[in-house]
Write a protein that binds this DNA or RNA. Structure first.
Lengths: 253, 253
DNA sequence: GCAAAAGTGTTCTATGTACACCCATGT
DNA sequence: ACATGGGTGTACATAGAACACTTTTGC
């Protein structure tokens, strides 16, 4: 074993048969904003281990797939949605030998951001899927997730919070046509904070390529109609959006 | 296969035997600064595939190890150094089915930053290891690396460049006792830029916990002796260091 | 004294913050 | 009319950029 373990792509000999089976999986942190709250798609497990616990959706990487393709396929299979343009970004890989009690499973975690609107409520057809509000999960009184999925979820949420600062990622959380206030509410939900509407608007409009005006307005209910925009081609925000500290009133509910 | 591939941690049945063998490896991007140039540790391959090409050090994850432990062990084995306090940070996982022509290998890449001084020159005992200047590798005329290691190296370097902005990572590139100018030369080497010494000094000293004064001075050659510092306990820089665009004079040599 | 590198002072400007105020719609 | 949310104006504070200037050593 010692001999075999020292071999590898950079070594002279190579004997994969000397290693026990390792399974490679993907786990998905699928985020959206529902009713102003950052939420994640979870699956209720029907089998041991962690029977009846909630877990991130995921599955094994097939022999002919890149892990990113596995993530997209698993998403289609578990949600029934075939949305083009969803981008899965790799968070990290989790490989503790004990993370799955059955066998060695190395899991590559991905995060994706979806707009709220056109989603079939998970839990209608597949009765074991649901959206969970992040703040209800990542606090002491929340239900622990299966395996190391609480860690994965934490890392995925922190990644999204960070990327909002210096990328135009917020547009992924919003429908194709949106208002500046829609975009601001994305930031407020993900960061659990309140942003000054006037300054936020100037910041977004002064960043070239962040959003593109459509010369149309909403015909919503009360208040002055808002201008509509679509996402621009910019991906990086320069300078970055400043992240305010979470405000007490939005901290937990 | 379809049946087996749909099983997994979140599914009812589980048949890992239905999957072909997958090997899990780690690859290491070990960076340091030598003669003012950001450099990486490479190994010259002695076997096919990619015989005589240069590659990142690495090896397979053993059954009882976390991938991070594998990274530390491979580093010890390939350098002969047992430095405590070296931190390996996960970059990403590379899992293209074709990335290794021999079999399916999923590789988890790590990056580490070392100070220059106390390192035995790789290539003395193991005649196939050497430090390469990053700028000589990541340009069109450089030698291509084995496998997808050019991509991994790119991602690792970009990670380090980004983390210099908002963390105190630069202290990892520098010996235990250092001057503000030493620290500035780290930024200049990693970013290929020139920083204003006066403004850099104020920036570092005004960030609480970035560095701690030792009330000693260097007795170097020419010029006024500099105050010595050690790394502080801070890890995040708030506000971040601003990254200047690469200057033409330092761009390539 | 002079060169060289370290360290301080100061001005200018860009950018974020706070808040007052006006605009356009539904009821 | 007035409540409500959208949008603009403006004064202030913070912090980075640029550069002049002083300090402390070796030669």
């Amino acid at each position: 074993m010692t001999q075999a373990a020292k071999t590898g792509p950079g070594s002279a000999t190579y004997d994969p048969g000397a290693f026990p089976a390792v399974a490679v999986a993907v786990d998905l942190v699928v985020l959206t904003i529902r009713a102003g709250r950052l939420s994640v798609l979870l699956i209720e497990r029907g089998e041991e281990p962690f029977k009846d616990a909630w877990a991130l959706p995921g599955g094994f990487v097939r022999p002919d797939e890149t892990p990113a393709q596995s993530a997209e396929r698993e998403f289609r299979e578990e949600t029934g949605l075939d949305l083009s343009g969803i981008h899965f970004e790799q968070i990290a890989t989790y490989g503790d030998p004990q993370r799955d009690p059955r066998m060695r499973v190395i899991s590559i975690a991905y995060v994706a951001m979806l707009p709220d609107l056109p989603l079939p409520e998970p839990g209608t057809d597949a009765s074991d899927a649901a959206w969970w509000v992040i703040d209800d999960l990542l606090t002491e009184d929340g239900p622990g997730l299966a395996f190391d999925h609480t860690s994965i979820l934490n890392d995925g949420v922190e990644r999204v919070r960070a990327k909002l600062e210096y990328t135009s990622l917020a547009c992924s959380f919003v429908p194709e046509r949106f208002t500046i206030s829609d975009l601001r509410r994305v930031y407020e939900a993900v960061w659990n904070t309140q942003l000054e509407p006037a300054n936020f608007r100037r910041k977004v409009l002064s960043t070239p390529g962040f959003v593109v005006a459509l010369d149309k307005t909403t015909s919503n209910g009360v208040g002055r109609p808002a201008e509509l925009f679509r996402a621009g081609q910019a991906t990086q925000l320069q300078p970055a959006m400043v992240r305010a500290a979470p405000s007490r009133g939005e901290d937990k509910r």
